[in-house]
Nucleic acid binder design. Structure first.
Length: 443
RNA sequence: GGCCCUAUAGCUCAGUUUGGUUAGAGCGCCAGCCUGUCACGCUGGAGGUCGACGGUUCGAGCCCGUUUCGGGUCGCCA
C-alpha cells in the first residue's frame, strides 16, 4: 500500500483542500459520477458530498488498470497525487492523478434517467418517481443544499435574538384552527388530527420563553391540485412576546431574511453559482396598507371582483410595483381585513374592520402571513363568539389568555415556497425533496 | 372537483400533403477508435404490445368512442 502523504479531504475539508496538498498523495472516497474514456487514458469524475473532483487515469502513473468494475454510481476510494489541471480557459483547478482505485460497492443496474450530465432532463413526474436517484445530480442536490441554508439562517438568526427552539406535537385531539381542512387519524379508537400549524402551542410558550421558533412539517388536507400547494410542507414559525407593535415582528423577519441571504452568499457559494441564484438585496422592506394596495390594483388592473383579498394577478402586479417604486424584491402588505384573518388576530383599535397583520410578498408571491395576536382573555372570547366559534372547545388554548399573556405576535413562512421563488421555479415540487400532494405519497 | 392539452425506445421528442411494406432522432446502454476531456468527439450495434380497451376500414401510431395516467389553469393559502 502506498503511503498517504497529504491530508485526506473529507466532506468537511473538500476540494478547497486540494491546493494545500499539491504534489502530495491523498485518498478520497466518493461515487464515480462520470467517466470520459479518451484513448489510453480517462477522466473519472468523482462525486463527493458537495462537489465533483476530476481524477485522471493513465497507465503512465496509475498502478491500477481500469476494468469493468469502474462504472458510474460505483462507490470508490481513489488514491493519487494532487496536481494542477490543464484547463483551456486558464482557470486554476486541481485534479487527482490516479494511483489506485478501490471499488467499495457496485450498482446492480444503470440509473433510469441520466444524472451524470449538467441537467436532469426528464419531466417533473419522472424526476419525482426516481427521486432517490435524480437527487444525486449536482444541480438537483444544490436545490436542497440552498434550502438547508435558508432554514439554517432562520435558526441561527433567531437564536442570536434569544429565541428558544421548540417542537410542538403534530398529533392533536382538537381540530384547532379550523378554516382549512385537517387530516383525521385513528388514535387507539379516538379521532385525532394532524397539526396544520404550531400556532396555538407557540403562543402558549410566549409566557414561558418569551421568544420561540419552530421549523417543522405541517399538514393540510386541502384538495388543491396546483403548482404551489403541498399537503405536507415545512413551516418556519416564530412567536415573540412584549412587542410594542406588530412592526416589531416585521423588523424581526427583515433581519432574518437579511441574515439568510448573506449566509447563502457566504457559505453556499458553490450552489448559488451552480444554480445561478439571484440573491435579493435587502435594506428596508417597504410597507403598504391593504386598502391602499387594493386601490392601486383597482386603478391599474381590470376586472377586480374580490375586494377582500388579492388574486394571483394582483400579487404579481404589486411585486412589480415594489420593484419599480422601491427597488425591492419584497413588499409588506399590512392591515388585512378582519373577516379574512384567523380568530386570534388582533383588530386595529383605531379601525376594527382591519387587523394588525401583514403578508410578505416576495417577487409578487405571498410567502409569509403574520401579525399581532389577541392577548386579553375577554377580547379573545368575544371575538370567538362573534365568529361563531364555541370558546368552550378551546379551553386549553384559552389558558394562555386566562392566566395572563404579554402583548405578542409572530409569523409563519413556507420553506418550500421561499426556496421555489428564490430559485425561480414554476412548481413548488421542484423545491420539495419528497413532495406529498393530492396524487403523490411516494417515494 | 371544473375546463383545456397530452400519452411513440430507459429518458426527451419527431412521425409529414391524404390511414398503406420492416415506426425514426438525440441522450443513455453495448462494442470499437481517439494524447486533456470538462454536456468530449467519431464509427457501428442492441433496444418498441405506439398507455389500455373497444369501434370504423381491405389496412390504424395516425380517424372515432370509453377509460387510465401525466401536464396546464381556477377554487384556497404558506
Amino acid at each position: 500500500m502506498e503511503e498517504i502523504t497529504g491530508v485526506v479531504p473529507t466532506t468537511s475539508t473538500p476540494y478547497s483542500e486540494f491546493k494545500n496538498n499539491l504534489d502530495k498523495v491523498v485518498a478520497i472516497k466518493g461515487t464515480i459520477h462520470n467517466i470520459r474514456d479518451m484513448s489510453d487514458f480517462a477522466f473519472i469524475l468523482v462525486r463527493t458530498a458537495r462537489e465533483l473532483i476530476q481524477c485522471v487515469y493513465s497507465p503512465e502513473f496509475s498502478d491500477y488498470r481500469l476494468n469493468e468494475t469502474v462504472v458510474e454510481q460505483a462507490a470508490a476510494k481513489v488514491t493519487g497525487k494532487v496536481v494542477k489541471s490543464e484547463t483551456r480557459d486558464g482557470s486554476e483547478r486541481y485534479e487527482l492523478q490516479i494511483h489506485n482505485i478501490e471499488i467499495l460497492s457496485s450498482p446492480a443496474a444503470i440509473p433510469p434517467v441520466v444524472i451524470s450530465k449538467k441537467q436532469v432532463t426528464c419531466e417533473l413526474s419522472v424526476n419525482l418517481d426516481n427521486r432517490p436517484v435524480t437527487l444525486r445530480n449536482p444541480k438537483e442536490r444544490a436545490i436542497f443544499k440552498i434550502q438547508e441554508g435558508i432554514q439554517r439562517g432562520f435558526r441561527e438568526y433567531l437564536q442570536s435574538q434569544n429565541f428558544t427552539e421548540i417542537h410542538s406535537p403534530k398529533i392533536n385531539f382538537a381540530g384547532a384552527e379550523g378554516g382549512t381542512n385537517v387530516f383525521k387519524l385513528d388514535y387507539f379508537g379516538k379521532t385525532v388530527y394532524l397539526a396544520q400549524s404550531p400556532q396555538l402551542y407557540k403562543q402558549a410558550l410566549v409566557p414561558v420563553y418569551e421568544r420561540v421558533f419552530e421549523i417543522a412539517p405541517v399538514f393540510r388536507a386541502e384538495h388543491h391540485d396546483t403548482s404551489r400547494h403541498l399537503n405536507e410542507y415545512i413551516s418556519m414559525d416564530f412567536e415573540m412576546g412584549f412587542i410594542d407593535s406588530f412592526t416589531d415582528i416585521m423588523n424581526m423577519e427583515t433581519g432574518a431574511l437579511k441574515y439568510i441571504m448573506n449566509l447563502l452568499k457566504m457559505e453556499y457559494a458553490p450552489e448559488v453559482e451552480l444554480l445561478k441564484v439571484d440573491i435579493p438585496e435587502i435594506n428596508t422592506i417597504p410597507c403598504v396598507k391593504f386598502k391602499d394596495a387594493k386601490a392601486l390594483c383597482v386603478k391599474k388592473l381590470k376586472n377586480i371582483t374580490d375586494m377582500k383579498d388579492f388574486e394571483p394577478e394582483e400579487e404579481a402586479f404589486l411585486g412589480k410595483w415594489a420593484k419599480q417604486q422601491f427597488n425591492s424584491d419584497f413588499l409588506f402588505v399590512t392591515h388585512y381585513l378582519s373577516k379574512k384573518r384567523p380568530f386570534y388576530t388582533m383588530d386595529d383599535p383605531e379601525d376594527p374592520e382591519v387587523t394588525l397583520s401583514f403578508d410578505l410578498l416576495f417577487r409578487g408571491i405571498e410567502i409569509t402571513s403574520g401579525g399581532q395576536r389577541i392577548h386579553d382573555y375577554n377580547e379573545q372570547v368575544e371575538k370567538m363568539k362573534k365568529m361563531g366559534m364555541n370558546p368552550d372547545e378551546f379551553e386549553t388554548y384559552l389558558m394562555l389568555h386566562k392566566y395572563g399573556a404579554p402583548p405578542h405576535g409572530g409569523l409563519g413562512l413556507g420553506l418550500e415556497r421561499l426556496t421555489m421563488h428564490l430559485l425561480g421555479f414554476k412548481n413548488v415540487r421542484y423545491a420539495t425533496m419528497f413532495p406529498r400532494d393530492i396524487n403523490r405519497v411516494s417515494p
